[in-house]
Design a protein around this nucleic acid. Sequence first.
DNA 1: CATCTTATACTGATCGTTCTATCTATTCCA
DNA 2: TGGAATAGATAGAACGATCAGTATAAGATG
Lengths: 195, 195
Amino acid sequence: MSPKKEQLIAVATDLFSRHGFHPVGVDRILSEAGVARMTLYNHFPGKDDLISAVLDRRYHDIMASLRACVEPTSSAREQLRAIFAWHEAWFATPEFSGCLFERALAEFGTDYPKISDVAIQYKKTMTAWMGDMLKTHLPEQTATRLASILLILLDGATIDARAFHDPTVATRAWGAAEAIIEREIALTSSNPARR
Amino acid sequence: MSPKKEQLIAVATDLFSRHGFHPVGVDRILSEAGVARMTLYNHFPGKDDLISAVLDRRYHDIMASLRACVEPTSSAREQLRAIFAWHEAWFATPEFSGCLFERALAEFGTDYPKISDVAIQYKKTMTAWMGDMLKTHLPEQTATRLASILLILLDGATIDARAFHDPTVATRAWGAAEAIIEREIALTSSNPARR
DNA sequence: CATCTTATACTGATCGTTCTATCTATTCCA
DNA sequence: TGGAATAGATAGAACGATCAGTATAAGATG
């Protein structure tokens, strides 16, 4: 990919993260990236598509970073713990400013599919991934329901970590997740009929 | 309060809820409210203050609505259940479009205190309220930690309910909350030394 | 030669905000 | 009861700034 296009995405990601999508104008991205106006419009039909590209990039980066943190050979619980730990480390990052997908959803709603689709896909992918981990210990239906709860915990933790500038919410979220998982496993194993 | 001011807040609330804060211009609020330009600027120094007033109003409305749903004489668990049920009913509302406080935080971050303070105050109030309920059954420190988890669950459920257009996340969130509370109560009562 | 990037000027629209001048309703005093 | 004073609301023009996007032509790189 063109280095100019790369830099546009990188600078746009930084600016959008710090100030939001609407408040950051094309002009600012251009001057901060040191790129000419027409170069942007040669690579992207419009600002919407730049936003979309930023979210796409972010999606792949995050998934790659997450997968690198999760040892596929370890137990399901260990893998889930790694996901929550990844979030805590992320929250503690100085540049942490919430989840870009959530903020895109908050600013644009679900009316701009080009933008919101990535955000929703991210949620679905995470839920499915965690669901797969849980299915090694739990019946499918239970695992799916539990995964949706884990997503709620991760999303809620991300929101509150930003609002309170407090990375430790991830620890409490993981504590809650562990309690729920343990309870469900205990219920299932003590009552094999549920399998 | 002046009826014109009232209507400005009402119309602005509706438009902000449906489209976000940045995309809705002053002109649109004025024309939709049938109010003259200068009338707005006589009541509010600027758009920021109108947003702030909208959030303030929302804060008081929500707290009043919540308090009306929570029977003060019933048990702590019943009160908490009522809070989660209130959220589920809210999610199922046709005009539900996420939490306006969260969306204000997402759009403006914590750099505009006039706007973000209300959002953060709402979170703190909710946490303290739920913490007080839990303190009737649990030691203070445990109750505080648990309340922060309940807030995570409520915030996460609100986010996901909007993203997936699915009000039932509230039910799963409450199931998780119940599990965590039960476990904590069992732990405390079986080990009085923790009191 | 061809492709990419550059700079600059420009479009038409919209942004939040201010100004002016007129209109309407209430209030207060004679 | 009548008339002036006051306050609030009105319409509409205009402000300078910024918005996303386009046009054009020269410069760079291979």
